[in-house]
Design a protein around this nucleic acid. Structure first.
Lengths: 248, 248
DNA sequence: GGTAATTTGTCCGTATGTATA
DNA sequence: ATATACATACGGACAAATTAC
């Protein structure tokens, strides 16, 4: 079936007016016809016209004031896309189902190779937890590496039993608050060590996701590196622009 | 009788229902009385009840579905990890520098292969623009495919001269508003066609980013597929938790 | 699995309130 | 103060979607 919701009179009216506004029939600052006139022109009731205008107002195309009419407002600056909302749960969704199996758990000192992989400073000491996440009997969903600030290293003992994201654990245990998450995603060829764990061919494509969690002090609490075989994972997320925020 | 000016009936109804919801009279998951019942209880018309419910829906307190009634929805997240803000510019940052070179530009009908690649419905018609982005004389940064809703296909002629993201162009030209962006990222082996364009080996790892842009009508305005050779790209973004947004 | 009933969604016409040029 | 245009409000009707039988 045609997915076009072109039915509904008020959507048709809204679409027509929208087009006329951008075509310059009603330039910025000008006044749209009155609701009564729009009723006559489109041969619809005032309810329908108002419902159409409501859409245009929701999109910040026009503004209405009693007696002054409905005015075409200038489009907010192109760079004001600043307020968009996404759920951090999207970011973490993958972690919910699969269970973490820990293969090693030890303090490490960052060398040049690990600096490249984590962005942490050479010579600093971190709790490294390495393992994989699997979903039942199938091959692992991803290989996982945690690098945890030594100040919070006590969480290491809780990881075996824990499923899901780690940073709420740190927040609860130490009373700190994670205020910033930086994520980097890259496509990489699978190294020989990981190929064995993930049961894929060496050199095949994999998705490497590195996340850095910062506290309100600006300190790095944790760095996570997940490596997903290409065939078993797609990372997805949705952002929604918050409405009624653009003006001003 | 000095009645308070902003004492509109629908606001009174909305206020009352809102209080009852947070007081637990209508717990999460339960169904509100039908609009007819609310009309009787408050002795107002259905218009007034619907206007009140619209406010509650705007606040994400309830959701309405035909026949199912109006349900009290769970708060976004009890633990307040739900409201995080990022800039859509982060999402698009990569596109700013490199210049797009267009190789082809034609209407296409979605077949099974394209459905897999774009998520669009088989049989629908879209403007397909294919090319690559390069930064000076070096090898291309990424291969780019746009699939643009035929309603907005007129932007195709502007693309050659244009650099940067496309969807503001659509917003300006047609007055629609992009309210939702969905992004999927996967690691893929490079196909033979793309290997030639990108000047990398067939089968080497690449980052495939698919983005779907939806308008406030819920219609898909555009789908973009970018393929980045692994060595030339890392996708990064930062999210910051927003302050006092959880309550309500 | 098809049908009926229920509930929201859309649309109409009309009337009155309210803010403002 | 007045007229005007949007804002709120009423009542009735049918359509569409979904649940329940």
């Amino acid at each position: 079936m045609t997915v076009t919701p072109a039915d509904h009179r008020y959507l048709q009216v809204a679409r027509t007016l929208r087009k006329e506004i951008v075509d310059g029939v009603y330039p910025v600052g000008s006044q749209l016809p009155t609701e009564q006139q729009l009723c006559e022109r489109f041969e619809v009731s005032r309810y329908t016209v108002r419902e159409a205008l409501r859409r245009l107002r929701d999109d910040n195309l026009v503004a209405s004031r009693p007696r002054a009419g409905t005015l075409v407002v200038p489009r907010p600056e192109t760079n004001s896309y600043a307020q968009d909302v996404m759920s951090i749960n999207d970011l973490l969704a993958f972690a919910s189902g699969a269970q973490l199996t820990i293969e090693s758990n030890a303090m490490v000192v960052i060398d040049e190779h690990l600096r490249e992989r984590t962005g942490l400073s050479v010579g600093t000491e971190w709790l490294a937890v390495r393992g994989y996440r699997a979903d039942g009997t199938a091959a692992p969903v991803c290989a996982t590496e945690y690098y945890i600030n030594r100040a919070f290293a006590a969480v290491g003992r809780l990881l075996q039993r824990h499923s899901g994201p780690i940073f709420p654990l740190i927040e609860d245990l130490f009373g700190v608050s994670i205020v910033e998450v930086r994520q980097e995603i890259a496509a990489v060829p699978v190294t020989s060590e990981l190929a064995e764990v993930l049961r894929v061919e060496v050199g095949s494509a994999a998705l490497e996701m590195q996340r850095t969690y910062k506290t309100s002090d600006g300190e790095v609490a944790q760095v996570t590196v997940n490596t997903h075989p290409s065939s078993r994972y797609r990372h997805s997320m949705t952002m929604r622009r918050v409405k009624g925020q653009a003006g001003q």
